[in-house]
């Protein structure tokens, strides 16, 4: 793509036509077709997934590359900067709502469905006729003992360590931010690297925890409502940490190649916001999934 003429910062920046979005969607749809084939035994093979992922990743890469160059090239006036701030805030808000659905499921199971199955409230008959003898204890895999006996992960071991790691990383990213604002690029990069390492360590432990749950504790996605909520909540959180870590790496790369200015660096801030969000979700998880 040819690059723009000269930036005109009196006008709001409207990008020229772009084929990225369409291609990105096409990539995603290819992935979906592959996954559909896998789920429904349609034998479409790995090609759609691999091709789709390749397309999607390269498009995202090109798109981000372009945005960073538009940004560094001075095309984004202060109004565009505000757009990004608003946009990122609303995006994070939507993510909160997404996690809300799963936290809601956890709440519902623990406060409503399990007590009902155990005959509380107006539901004596549910227990007496359908699930005699079932008692409401948490963790639970339901009156059908779906998935068989399992053990849970002790919260004050690795989960607590992970909490410390993530909270620390929220601080380090903030220190990196301060360093950037004060023009101390080297310090900023150093703190960013620390943040990335903390994120990666978190993920390392998380993966280990999953492996242990599956192999030692018989705790799986199929372990009734406990396993379902546990893995869906921590799993989606883990995906967000992965994404956040990747973005931190990219931002670090941009810092190394001289991007961002002490007073103009929303790309950096957006990722930092996201990282804090991921951190806050974890605190919710630690409290409601592990401790309580």
């Amino acid at each position: 793509m040819s690059s723009h003429a000269t930036p005109d910062r009196t006008k709001y920046f409207v990008p020229e036509p772009s084929w990225y979005p369409f291609a990105l969607t096409a990539g995603l749809v290819a992935v979906i077709i592959g996954v559909w084939g896998y789920l429904e035994d349609k034998h479409v093979g790995l090609v759609p997934v691999l091709a789709g992922v390749a397309v999607a990743i390269s498009i995202i890469w090109m798109w981000m590359y372009r945005v960073s160059h538009e940004s560094e090239g001075g095309f984004y006036g202060p109004q565009v900067d505000r757009t990004f701030r608003w946009g990122m805030s609303w995006f994070i808000f939507s993510e909160v709502a997404f996690f809300g659905a799963f936290f809601g499921a956890l709440y519902y199971a623990r406060q409503l469905s399990l007590p009902w199955l155990a005959g509380e409230g107006a539901e004596q008959s549910t227990n007496a006729l359908l699930w005699p003898g079932f008692e409401n204890v948490w963790p639970s895999n339901g009156p059908g003992a779906i998935g068989g006996d399992f053990e849970t992960i002790p919260e004050w071991g690795i989960p607590f360590l992970n909490t410390v790691l993530l909270i620390t990383s929220s601080f380090t990213v903030t220190w990196a931010h301060h360093a950037l604002k004060e023009g101390k690029r080297q310090a900023c990069i150093a703190w960013m690297i620390v943040t990335v390492l903390l994120g990666a360590t978190f993920l390392y432990y998380q993966v280990g925890e999953y492996a242990e749950a599956y192999s030692e504790l018989n705790l799986t996605l199929g372990s009734g409502i406990y396993g379902s909520t546990f893995f869906m909540l921590t799993g989606f959180h883990g995906m967000h940490v992965t994404l956040g870590t990747l973005m931190l790496i990219i931002i670090t790369g941009r810092l190394i190649s001289g991007h961002f200015k002490p007073d103009y660096h929303f790309g950096f801030e957006g990722v930092a916001w996201y990282w804090h969000f991921v951190d806050v979700v974890w605190i919710g998880l630690f409290t409601f999934v592990y401790v309580l």
């Binding site: 469905s113 996605l221 396993g227």
Partner: peptide, 16 residues
Amino acid sequence: FATSFFSAAGGGDPVM
């Protein structure tokens, strides 16, 4: 994937 969000046997609830 064998989750039980909406199945009573696993401790979930279709009404959820």
